[in-house]
Design a protein around this nucleic acid. Sequence first.
DNA 1: GGTCTGCGGTTGTAAAGTGCAACTTGACGG
DNA 2: CCGTCAAGTTGCACTTTACAACCGCAGACC
Lengths: 140, 140
Amino acid sequence: MPDRDAALDAIQRELTAFARRARHKAAQMHPDLSLVTYSMLDLVKERGSCRASDLAAHFMLDKSTVSRQVTALEKLGLITREPDPEDQRGQLLRPSEDGLRLLADAAERRRLAFRERFTDWTDDDIARFAGYLTRYGAGD
Amino acid sequence: MPDRDAALDAIQRELTAFARRARHKAAQMHPDLSLVTYSMLDLVKERGSCRASDLAAHFMLDKSTVSRQVTALEKLGLITREPDPEDQRGQLLRPSEDGLRLLADAAERRRLAFRERFTDWTDDDIARFAGYLTRYGAGD
DNA sequence: GGTCTGCGGTTGTAAAGTGCAACTTGACGG
DNA sequence: CCGTCAAGTTGCACTTTACAACCGCAGACC
């Protein structure tokens, strides 16, 4: 089935092309935060609170890398660290007020950019595209 | 139109999630080449021959970065460089036999992984998904 | 023809992200 | 009490990347 293979090639190419551009654009949007650092902050918000090892597992990164990024986020005042009362080895990460503000601001700007980009797409096309992406992402 | 916004949010979330994991997965799939280096080789093959500045423009990378990656590709014997007969300043990049072989091999492995992942997708769904991604990518 | 401007590419330098390994500290089971 | 394991930190090396300075050639303009 050559058509199917050609389509699979296109999917692969476009997704990697997107990944390349994502880092570039994320760097422009938030000069102080990389895409990964931003995602970590986002996950901390999503979970309410979590440990550094949770971040390492979720992002498939080494714990040392996470340690440094968390330190950076704390230095920027975007998260707080407190020892885990249940296990003194670990620490609970929480987003700070500034961190929440930054996330909300970024989400809003991103939404505006997306509205712009999809102006000439129909509602049906957008819904189907979102459905396909979700279905793809569920395979991870 | 809340549905539309919800779908846009989903698209945004899934695409950034993919971008996060891209590096890790690419490293697994192509152990010898980085994601960017591999993409460069792929574009050179796609175009038949091209100049380094074309790569820089397409990948939104600095020309110095491209220069180093191209040097690496040449050292690995995956591409060849020859002065552009039309413009002595530039150079024409072409994939070597080894480069073509590596690309074909990688494409085959990738296709296998993708076939696995997309087993329960219909041909129509895959074609539409590829179409949406291409349409999205064309907006850059 | 000579000069100026601009483009294609290279190299030096610095910064950031990442993984591996060694270490510290605390938890848990014999 | 001790050995083992888990959570984080730090040192180190490597890679990727951008910016800036530079070289050589091309094309335009006088």
